[in-house]
């Protein structure tokens, strides 16, 4: 009985901001072949929109680990913590 990562994320206590705390530079993403953000994100929030060719990040499920920002050596990802009212609230940690 395996759970999808989206189902796992749904178990977390989360308060979502209306604004994303993760911004992508689509110019840099367009030139990127590796797209390591997709593989490294534990919440699987990154994907490529096949129609527009743009990278998409679903900031709402973010676990706030910062792995994507560290992995993106091309510097496309501008990443800050969500504002003080928002984001994941770990109940176990």
């Amino acid at each position: 009985m395996t759970m999808k990562v989206e189902e796992k994320l749904a178990l977390n206590a989360m308060k979502n901001d209306t604004m994303s705390h993760i911004l992508l530079d689509q110019g840099i993403c367009a030139a990127c072949k590796e797209r390591m953000c997709i593989a490294v994100c534990p919440a699987h929030l990154y994907s490529l929109n096949e129609e527009t060719g743009e990278m998409v990040v679903e900031y709402a499920g973010c676990l706030e680990c910062g792995t994507c920002m560290i992995a993106c050596i091309y510097g496309s990802i501008t990443w800050d913590y969500p504002g003080g009212e928002f984001g994941v609230q770990y109940r176990y940690g």
């Binding site: 395996t2 390591m36 593989a39 994100c41 992995a71």
Partner: peptide, 19 residues
Amino acid sequence: GIDSLIHGAGGFDAPGLME
């Protein structure tokens, strides 16, 4: 290791490894 995930991924992503 984050650099291992980048370079040695070989089709494995972080959620997949955990699964």
